[in-house]
Nucleic acid binder design. Structure first.
Length: 562
DNA sequence: AATAGATGGCCCC
DNA sequence: TGGGGCCCCTCTAT
């Protein structure tokens, strides 16, 4: 894949004419809103003006400098050139036409007209050439793939959902994990290091532990042999092993034993996974190194191993569910690597999967472990159908908007662990769509075997981007982390069990009305059913999306089948 | 109500 | 190979 090229640097900002007679700049005849800014600079301010732009001086020579009027012409905020403007117009975002498409990264069109956005399948791009099938592939397909039924899970079928929301965190949610045995217990980690526990069947059962980590909780894994215990990795450079009933934990590993010596040396732990068969905990840092920990003996094993480009962040680690010797890693060096855990040395990977940009996540498929699903910041989800086949090229690339703004948690396409065909994945979408005058960011269900967008989940009260999503291992339930909120979604029919909590709006369940599946907008309805979300969000939403004030305060959430 | 600031990747030198 | 400047459909606090 050609790496998407960023366009070159643009000329510096035009500060306009230093002319106090005519600030009118002729050709702005088109629109009602003349966005000309006039700024009068007098003597003392001129000093500052000089600092920024030396050319301002010299005009007002000699005596008292005349008032300087700076006029800013209507200019594109992206490329700083005149004649067009980028940004929101109502709930539609207009791209700068000089930039490559924000979705597929190709030049010549904008997101509005991108074929991948218009297409129903939301843009599946086949791999450039078909994987050549080897004998191994045929054996593999006959023995393994034949056992994989082609049944899609039920979750994507209903078009009405119940929803629960809770705001446990004071910073954005960075990780989610369902409890392995207690069906309604969800864990959430945030940017500040706090870990929340929420039993969504008993809305008042919420706990937040604030002193386990001091910054971003990047990963949470249960000790499935003793599932009140939780392993967590954090950007504070530690691995903790915490008793969830008491919140008391053990510090298993600290990769900054010498403390803080500035950001250039501070190690942060991103990827982490547990290898149950081998009694191993694997974690990796932001400088490319892998650490091994013996969970039985509670000791670190050997020295750290460089597994990605030196100095680059290792973002994710995943152990193969069926083959304990296989490890998958991904990182900021644009690669995902497959490793043999028995032979871990720098450059000793079994296979290397190239990506256009940073790889946010790489996962083996949940049952057979034979497929690989990756999410890369080049706005592509990639699927390799067989780890035993040709790994030079992905089997499919799916164009999908998740090239994230730096202030968000990276998007990760997550398998549905219940899907026996190992094809359904969920991932939040970055670019918004205009839903009846409101810009919303859906959560997408994608059939990775075809690239089709199977369903998209929207909710008028979910106005923020939802980069963190997890499907329940057994139930038809989706958990979403969006900004500081945690959402639970499930097919309709839920009984509200706690009227008191509902009244206090600590948790909100809403039962949505049935709508035709093809409709891609939200009905506006009255705010009388008592299920509306705190008004703060709503006001903001109306403001932000430009006073068109379609009353979109409905709390209906729905999955729209395409 | 407007805005700063937190923040990471990437490109250039 | 390291540092500085810039990217620009966020979100929140002031």
């Amino acid at each position: 894949m050609p790496a998407p090229s960023r366009p070159r640097k643009r000329p510096t900002i035009i500060v306009g004419s230093v002319d106090n007679s005519s600030s009118s700049s002729s050709s702005d005849d088109e629109e009602e809103e003349e966005e000309e800014v006039e700024d009068t600079v007098d003597d003392e301010d001129e000093e500052k003006g000089k600092g920024r732009n030396g050319s301002l001086s010299g005009k007002g020579v000699g005596k008292k400098a005349p008032a300087i009027i700076i006029s800013l012409k209507k200019v594109c905020k992206v490329c700083k050139e005149e004649g067009h403007q980028a940004g929101f117009q109502g709930a539609n975002y207009i791209d700068c036409p000089r930039k490559p498409c924000f979705l597929c990264k190709m030049p010549g069109h904008t997101t509005m007209s991108c074929p991948h956005r218009v297409a129903l399948e939301h843009g599946v791009v086949p791999a450039l050439r078909k994987n050549k099938q080897t004998q191994l592939d045929y054996v593999f397909e006959r023995q393994l793939m034949s056992q994989i039924p082609k049944i899609k899970p039920a979750f994507v079928i209903p078009d009405k959902l119940d929803r629960g929301v809770v705001k446990l965190h004071s910073r954005r949610v960075t990780s989610l994990e369902f409890h392995p045995t207690m069906n309604s217990v969800l864990l959430s980690g945030d940017k500040k290091g706090q870990i929340g526990i929420w039993d969504y069947s008993k809305p008042n059962e919420k706990t937040v532990y604030g002193s386990i980590h001091s910054c971003i909780v990047n990963n949470m894994k249960f000790d499935t042999r003793n599932d009140i215990m939780l392993y967590t990795s954090s950007s504070d450079g530690t691995i903790s092993y915490t008793d969830l009933e008491t919140g008391i934990g053990v510090l298993l590993m600290d990769v900054n034993p010498n403390g803080w010596n500035g950001p250039s040396t501070w190690r942060m732990l991103y990827g982490m996974d547990i290898n149950l068969d081998k009694g191993l905990l694997l974690a990796a840092d932001n400088f490319g190194y892998l650490y091994l920990f013996d969970t039985r003996e509670k000791v670190k094993i050997g020295e750290s191993i460089l597994i990605h480009r030196k100095g680059s962040k290792v973002v994710g680690l995943h152990c193969n569910p069926t083959q304990p010797d296989l490890l998958l890693s991904c990182g900021n060096d644009h690669y995902a690597h497959i490793w043999d855990i028995r032979r871990l040395e720098t450059q000793s990977f079994l296979a290397s999967l190239a990506h256009g940009r940073v790889v946010n996540s790489a996962y083996f498929s949940p049952h057979t472990g034979s497929k690989i699903l990756t999410t890369s910041q080049d706005n592509r989800i990639r699927v390799w159908d067989s780890v035993f086949g040709n790994l030079n090229m992905p089997s499919r690339e799916i164009v999908h908007s998740h090239d994230f703004n730096r202030h968000l948690t990276p998007f990760k396409a997550e398998w549905d662990p219940k899907d026996p065909s190992e094809s359904l994945a969920v991932i939040g979408r970055y670019i918004s769509e205009n839903y009846n005058g409101v810009a919303l960011h859906p959560i997408d269900f994608i059939d990775t075997s075809t690239g089709h967008l199977v369903a998209e989940l929207i909710d008028p009260d979910l106005t923020t981007i939802s980069p963190v999503n997890k499907l329940h291992p057994r139930d038809d339930i989706l958990a979403t982390g969006s900004s500081r909120s945690v959402f639970i979604w499930r097919p309709g029919g839920l009984k509200v069990e706690d009227k008191e909590a509902e009244r206090k709006k600590e948790i909100i369940f809403c039962n949505t009305g049935k709508k035709s599946a093809k409709e891609k907008f939200i009905e506006s309805d009255g705010d009388d059913d008592g299920d509306d979300f705190p008004s703060k969000g709503k006001n903001k939403q109306q403001k932000k999306y430009g006073g068109k004030s379609d009353k979109s305060g409905s709390s209906k959430s729905k999955i729209v089948k395409i």
